[in-house]
Nucleic acid binder design. Structure first.
Lengths: 190, 190, 190, 190
DNA sequence: AATGAATGAGAGTTCATTCAT
DNA sequence: TATGAATGAACTCTCATTCAT
């Protein structure tokens, strides 16, 4: 018997990712989780708290992975490649979480939103620092490191919207493809 | 004095882009447009019709621009570059429309949704054909043309989420930056 | 070109008879009459006024016919038979009006309603007087003249709900059938 | 303390019978039932479902009574008389239900309406069969059995619109009166 | 832990009606 | 005569949430 708390989380992931936070009602959530709508409130605070918990967990994992990847590679080229691989793998393996993170930030309000935005900013900073370092070292040929960071991140995040783990592209190949595209995009010197 | 119909459209663009279709109420829409909620219905069918009209108009323009760009360039490299430039400029100049197109497809239902999806698919086909042609001609160094198309499109669409026309990067420079990144990403042979 | 006022009246008859006063919107009325909803108000007061006018006209005609029938026959048996025939013919020829009269009284309010109720009461009084006269004269075998009046009236009004002038029963035959049933119901002495 | 579900049903009966389905708002229903309009929806599906439930229940009871009456009497005269008595008693005892059944059929839509119409048709068939049998056996003197059935049914249904159980006519006497009128109307041979 | 009952607020939409043109 | 524009009020129904059991 899967724990009810886990079922609530799963239901929220499925539904928020597919229909968006505001497109999902508490009763749909409850039905999907196999609970009454009143029982839902034993496993969450408000609906917004549930969203925030999902976003925080996902961003914290993303951030931890990115910081680990950054720490593991002193060389900017290797570092960026490691960031790309981690990001792509995360988005391929947990597309629901990442779609929610990327798309439902506007549904958060007040303090909670500020916290999640801060996490996202920290995550982007890790990327920016790596790219800036490579650019400063002359390892990349990019017109604007800031624009390149945005382009790279968007490009990699898109994976969550189309990649099918049961499809023809294995996850390792996907990571290789994105790593290669990222290197080219950045104009990595041979 | 702007026409009321135009004010309704503007209000919808502002609000749908910022809070998402389901995050916007009919009364907010009306207030923003300077009308009563009842009067809104002189200028639209249902709320969903309003969304569909916005999406269709944007996609049709995007498609027309892309087909024009494709028709203007026989060379795959030039063609892809033209597509990138048109896409980036559109997303920079009309970020609200494009964010709605990219983010609210799930809010559409039934026949309308099918129509909009068909438009989007036609648009993506134009890109795919151009990329496939370049790959077939050996002009690009890409591991997978299909993945490259997705990466490119996501990368360029992201512009609508951050570019500020009043910021430090002029639009022409933005287009140049993305064109360059696209060429590198695709591994265009020198 | 049929007069617009007439078209409004026809539309109201069709729709009120089919869907009931509260089941019909002003826009449906307008569409059926080939006018805009605003233009409707050149030909009527309020929606309720329109209903009242229909009911009054129908009841006044019914009443005039009944009074004429009563005046034409001193003999109670002949008088009741004449009332039955007039009522049945009216309901067969103008089923929409009579269905509205029979079914939408509750939609009227205030003074108007009182007036229409008064008309209806006058109409029923003509019937009651005739039946009472026959009963007093020993011409009828009825347990209760008051109950008999109600039974007779309901029986005859039903015609408006099913009779089809294009069907197998000619109007004259219909009137004969009801006259015969009425005589039998009242136990007219041979 | 009456159950809330029962109070909703009672409120609907009172209001639908008096003002018609379309003449009653959900808030009036709620107020009459002593609930908020939102709470109403714990006890019903849609407003139309509520109407349909009332109509079905009433028609099913009517049908069961009629079939029992028909089964209990082989003789057509006795059978019709039993049908009349059952119908009159039902309409006298439950005038709200029967008025709703007789007057609000047009408010139903789609599948539900078809089901209720089918029930009504079955009910009328029981009457028609009995009358036809009597006519075939020469027990009745009627010009048209089909017209007679309509006349009889309308005559008896009218009871729901005027009979007052607290008035001067006891229910048993009412049934006797209608049975006698029905026999006479049908021209039952002595 | 679980839920039936309850609700104020709000959803999208239509209502009957008015009025300037 | 005719109507597009406009609206406050009402419509049916669902929202997220609470609470007694």
């Amino acid at each position: 018997m899967a724990g009810a708390a886990e079922r609530v989380r799963e239901a929220a992931l499925d539904l928020f990712a597919d229909r968006g936070f505001h497109g999902v009602g508490i009763r749909q959530l409850a039905e999907r989780a196999g609970l009454s709508s009143a029982s839902l409130y034993h496993y969450m605070g408000t609906k917004e708290d549930l969203l925030a918990a999902i976003m925080r967990a996902c961003l914290e994992r993303l951030l931890a992975d990115a910081e680990a990847a950054a720490a593991a590679h002193a060389d900017p080229v290797a570092r960026v490649e490691a960031l790309v691989r981690a990001h792509v793998v995360s988005h391929a393996e947990r597309p629901r979480e990442t779609r929610v993170v990327d798309g439902e930030l506007a549904a958060l309000t007040g303090e909670t939103r500020a916290e999640v935005v801060a996490l996202r900013d920290r995550y982007e900073r890790v990327w920016q620092d790596a790219i800036d370092a490579g650019a400063a070292a002359g390892a990349f040929a990019v017109g604007s490191p800031a624009v390149a960071r945005r382009a790279l991140l968007e490009m990699c995040s898109g994976v969550a919207r189309w990649y099918d783990p049961a499809g023809p592209i294995p996850l390792t190949e996907l990571a290789d493809l994105y790593a290669a595209m990222a290197r080219q995009l950045l104009g990595v010197r041979a």
